[in-house]
Nucleic acid binder design. Structure first.
Length: 829
RNA sequence: GCGGACGUGGCGGAAAGGCAGACGCAGCGGUCUUAAAAACCGCUGGGGGGCAACCCCCGUGCGGGUUCGAAUCCCGCCGUCCGCACCA
């Protein structure tokens, strides 16, 4: 090899290890990614769910963050003023648990982790505006959790109540309903949770149930997530009916089938229903109490068992109610299949129409009365039926309602019930209020003081933040750690000046994440949680990306708090995230969840070192559909690196200098067609979040150019255009190498401030197209015809094709199907 | 149990009801090299026929259906994943 050639080869070799740090430094020095509120262009707020500062970004984080970065960069090149901020969800149990394990303070642990993660984000090349960083465990941030809490307290949206709540014995704290997974398992640590009666703080999210349900319809969110939210909110329409008890008490029930009230032959209360002790007769008391006690113990595991076939259990209380429409005496039972937490904790049992009531009635020999007869089947007979019938039919045995067809005539039934004063229409939700207090240390102190004289006293705004003391003993004991911090606990009552005790519970960290995106718009704001003007300009978030695991928890709370902020007059909108996209989960190579403890977690650092951040970004995009995730493999990354080397070689090749050559017009047209077709496809794929096919289009462009580079078109202006277009199209995906190539093409810095290329549909159009010709649905020939071929010409060509003739074997075509520009199908049977 | 999504080469995956397997990985063959790596050029679903250019048959989990034409739409199975699950 000659010396010159050797130097050339060295100089032009793609070397990410040299390119990437160079441009990173330049971008930072120039504040290229600093977002200016006043910059021109329509705003675009791209947000990705902020990470927990665990200390390292694993490959799943890259998947979650690098891909949305591509989209944010696209929007920027399209002329939008883009906000793409980042922060840290810094309060919460992992810090506290890690702190306990390593004997280090959660604050120290957290603040040591953050710079390491920031560095990894820098490596990724994400266009994050770090000047807006939000760290939720700082007093500057959490004081606004407290401020929001106080506003909600004023409006009755925050309240303290006693109730049966979920308790995690491992994390030593209560949990919100949303944090308890199937099988009664703690969302955080996987431990079995159980119920306890405790007084806790709640946010009244149920106040917004209807609105949360209704507004979800209009969101551009994955249908799956919207369905999950709908199910969680669980709206049921029906009626509340009053049943008089012989004891003089009134028993209220909620039912979705008020039309079947004539068939209510007994009643069932939840074992913990408050009326149980009063109505139980003395002879039944021992048995009732024993059952209630057992139900209570078994609640967690048995009662919400996944086994639907579990036999029905229950006991008779000795009490009788009067059916409000038949005036019959009907027995009142208790059973664990009725839940205290839903409706009124009591039901009217209509065994003929409800499967659970039916099985209960059969188990205990209770009467069954058919009140809905199906119209097109044998009439139901209560003595022989083997299951309840809940389909449509005609009311029978129902007094003046007889003959009404249900469910069509339900409105008439409801009108009758209301007119006769037996009950009223009601809508019930499954959604419960959000339990926000936690008996742990590393969170936002709840800003209230307990005073013997004044009761619960809110901490005045001018005394915020109530700072979390850093010198507390935070080993979990089941009691809030702050209880044992005397200096924190003892304070003066803000109202009377007498001695007071501070609330020692801290807030659920989901409070932090329920409004953090507002804070990015004005991170230094000192008078309010955020500047309403700036938040109003940036919000709502145009595109929110994150994992599907937050489909209910975070996303429901965030929607709720946004509505509260709207009602406080802070913002004008009620929905925080216009468009939501979920990435899939990157699994370990074995197809199981990546786990740090099993050592199956993959880190990006080594891959970045060996292949470069650009190649890793591409590889992650190329793995498959982004919302699908899948098992990790690093086999393909070499291919992405190869692609980048080829692109690099193409754009830096000597022959691509001044372009003055002549080339055959057809070849030039073919080159332009390739270039513009690629622009169209890359743009369409990015808009559709189809990053894998977007990368394929880039590769195809490079492969196409490789085939042409030694020919005459490589000396034409169109060749320059193709190379420049390639680099522009690569810019969102591979920001480093695109910047390097842009410079080498002699273009002005920065590629990331260039306009996204547009395509000319005229140039994409083919002049000659190939049309397959089928005989009886099988491709037998191909016609090369002008793109604007007429139908008659295409048919004629197809029918006269020798191959078609041969396959027709003398039979006359019975039909010829022509799809313009696509295909001809000759049918002969 | 109910609801939803999915099932395509050795692998990841691509296909507005219209040429199945784009693109990448892996593999095989070749060029260059003393050699290897890198790079570049081919081939690569299965079966069969032909000296060859090529040609035929089968093929998108299984079984049916709709259609001129089905990976795509419909019905029934099987499997995987997800959500819900005594919510009155």
């Amino acid at each position: 090899m000659t010396e010159v050639a050797e130097r050339r080869e060295l100089a032009e070799r793609y070397d990410p290890a040299a390119i990437e740090p160079k441009w990173r430094a330049r971008w930072e020095a120039d504040n290229l990614y600093r977002t200016d509120d006043a910059a021109p262009g329509p705003k675009w707020y791209s947000l990705t769910m902020y990470p927990y500062p665990s200390g390292i970004l694993h490959i799943g984080h890259w998947y979650a963050f690098a891909v949305p970065d591509v989209f944010a960069r696209l929007q920027r090149m399209r002329g939008h003023n883009v906000l793409f901020p980042m922060g840290f969800d810094a309060f919460g149990l992992p810090a506290e648990n890690a702190a306990i394990r390593n004997n280090i303070h959660p604050a120290t642990w957290t603040f040591e982790n953050i710079p390491a993660m920031r560095e990894q984000f820098r490596q990724m090349g994400a266009m994050i505006d770090w000047s807006r960083e939000v760290v939720t465990c700082t007093p500057e941030y959490y004081r606004w959790n407290q401020w929001l809490f106080l506003r909600m307290l004023e409006r009755g949206l925050a309240y303290r109540a006693n109730g049966s709540v979920w308790w995690c014995p491992n994390d030593q704290t209560v949990l919100a309903n949303e944090q308890v997974l199937e099988g009664n398992v703690c969302e955080r640590c996987g431990a079995q949770v159980s119920k306890r009666d405790l007084e806790q703080w709640y946010f009244k999210i149920t106040e917004y149930a209807e609105e949360l349900l209704r507004d979800a319809e209009g969101l551009d969110w994955p249908e799956r997530v919207k369905t999950m939210q709908r199910n969680w909110i669980g709206r049921s329409e029906g009626a509340r009916l009053s049943f008089a008890l012989e004891t003089g008490d009134t028993l209220e029930v909620f039912t979705t089938r008020p039309d079947t009230v004539f068939g209510a032959t007994f009643m069932v209360l939840a074992p913990e229903h408050p009326l149980v002790p009063t109505i139980t007769t003395e002879d039944r008391r021992a048995e009732v109490e024993a059952y209630a006690e057992r139900a209570r113990r078994e609640t967690e595991i048995e009662r919400q068992s996944t086994d639907v076939e579990r036999p029905k259990t229950g006991v008779f209380t000795g009490a009788y109610a009067l059916n409000p429409v038949t005036d019959e005496r009907i027995p009142v039972w208790i059973a664990d299949y009725v839940l205290m937490g839903y409706g009124t904790g009591a039901i009217m049992a209509v065994p003929a129409g409800d499967e659970r009531d039916f099985r209960f009635a059969r188990a205990f020999g209770l009467p069954i009365r058919v009140v809905v007869q199906p119209e097109d089947q044998e009439p139901l007979d209560p003595t022989t039926m083997t299951e309840a019938y809940h389909g449509p039919g005609v009311l029978v045995n129902s007094g003046e309602l007889d003959g009404l067809r249900v469910p069509e005539r339900m409105p008439d039934v409801l009108a009758w019930i209301e007119a006769t004063g037996r009950g009223r229409r009601e809508v019930t939700y499954r959604l419960r209020d959000w339990l926000i207090s936690r008996q742990r240390y590393w969170g936002t102190p709840i800003p209230v003081v307990y005073c013997d004289g004044c009761g619960v006293v809110p901490v005045p705004d001018d005394q915020l933040p109530v700072e979390l003391p850093l010198d507390a003993e935070f080993t979990p004991t089941g009691q809030s750690p702050l209880v044992s911090h005397a200096a924190f606990l003892h304070t003066t009552c803000p109202k009377c000046g007498g001695p007071g005790r501070r609330e020692t519970d801290t807030m659920d960290t989901f409070v932090d994440s329920s409004w953090y995106w507002f804070r990015y718009t004005s991170p230094g704001e000192g008078a309010l949680p955020f500047d309403p003007g700036r938040a109003g300009r940036w919000c709502p978030v145009d595109l929110y990306c994150g994992g599907i695991e937050h489909a209910i928890l975070h996303l429901l709370y965030a929607r709720f708090v946004t509505k509260v902020c709207r009602d406080l007059g802070l913002v004008g909108h009620g929905e925080p995230f216009v468009r939501l996209r979920n990435q899939g989960i990157i699994l370990a190579a074995e197809g199981t969840k990546m786990s740090k403890s099993r050592g199956t977690q993959v880190g990006p650092d080594e891959l970045v070192r060996d292949h470069g951040a650009d190649a890793l970004r591409l590889h992650l995009m190329y793995l498959g559909p982004w919302d699908q995730g899948g098992p990790w493999n690093d086999r393909g990354i070499a291919g992405m690196e190869r692609f980048l080397r080829r692109a690099f070689a193409l754009a830096t090749e000597a022959g691509t200098g001044p372009s003055d050559g002549e080339a055959p017009a057809a070849e030039v047209r073919a080159l332009q067609r390739l270039t513009h077709r690629t622009i169209a496809q890359v743009t369409r794929d990015l808009d559709g979040f189809q990053f894998n096919t977007m990368v394929a289009a880039l590769i195809e462009l490079v492969n196409g150019l490789m085939r042409l580079k030694d020919g005459p078109v490589a000396r034409t202006p169109e060749w320059r255009e193709a190379l420049e277009t390639l680099v522009l199209l690569m810019a969102p995906s591979t920001p480093y190498v695109a910047e390097e190539l842009w410079e080498r093409l002699g273009k002005p810095y920065s590629v990331h401030q260039q306009a996204w290329p547009s395509f000319d549909p005229e140039l994409i159009r083919e002049e000659l197209i190939e049309i397959p010709v089928q005989v009886n649905g099988k491709v037998r020939d191909k016609l090369t015809v002008p793109a604007d071929v007429t139908e008659d010409a295409a048919r004629e060509l197809a029918l006269t094709s020798p191959r078609v003739q041969a396959f027709l074997a003398g039979k006359a075509p019975t039909k010829v199907v022509y799809v313009p520009g696509r295909l001809v199908n000759v049918v002969a049977r």
